[in-house]
Amino acid sequence: MQILRPSSLLEACHLLESDPWDTRPLAGGTALVLMLRQGLVAPRAVVRLDGVDGLDGLEVTPHGLRIGALTTLTDVAASPVVQAHAPSLAYACSRVGNLRVRNAATLGGNVAEADYASDPPSVLVSLDAWCQVAGPSGGTRDVPVRELITGFLTTTLEPGEVVQAVVVPLDPGGRRATYEKYISRSSEDRPCVGVAASVQLRDGAVRGLTVVVGAVAGTPQRFDDLTAQAVGTTLGPSVRRSVASAYASAVDAMDDARGSAWYRQQMTEVVVRRALERIAPVAAGGGA
């Protein structure tokens, strides 16, 4: 296996485009190296992205909070800027795996890998985040994370495309967001169910609510028609129960070692309800 070290992002895109089936991009390596070791992938070459300019940085722009793709999960979690503008993302990144994993894993790599049993993707979908994707033509396109991830380890990235940055829209005011990670086994396990919820409040009433359930299916599960019922309410207990119950019925739950489909459905109801309790206005019995 060859290890390629492109000197620019464009060169990286070209290397990946030239042999899309047999070349893999390498960011933090926490996923790819495991797959290589287990023989699940055997590419002819890996393209190292570290050392490539334009994939770093963490700043507030007019479009939103821009996080360079190679920013490690540790840095996302510890960043005062992320904590100020997207606290649920900072928290979710702080709960991934263990410190050694978070020190190596990158946010861009996390999204591009599209592992269903990961924490950040559902949060990014709940915040309507998008990816700035660089391609071999030299241009970039914006792809919402919600559209980027289409299934198990599957994305809409085209051959030669690389996630350059993740952009999280800024809070226009009144946003409360949370990530509830439910682990069914040891504390370092991946989520059995991860629920990201974000509510936009004005004068104590819901203007918009987004709930995304991660780790239960191939893609983050988001059903805006089910959260519409909360608009105009104070997100009180009965609304929370109703949304949670609707989500439990709607998710396309799967079996794995962390729980059966039945169990995941039950946990979806519990964890969505707990997430909504956390972001509900204090007057509605939330804010725990």
Binding site: C192, A257, G259, S260, A261, Y263, Q266
Partner: peptide, 19 residues
């Protein structure tokens, strides 16, 4: 005593295969 096994027992339900 997995979480699923305990919950199934609490609810009086047979656990799923592989739970």
């Amino acid at each position: 005593l997995t979480a699923e096994r305990v919950l199934s027992a609490v609810r009086g339900r047979e656990p799923q295969e592989g739970a």
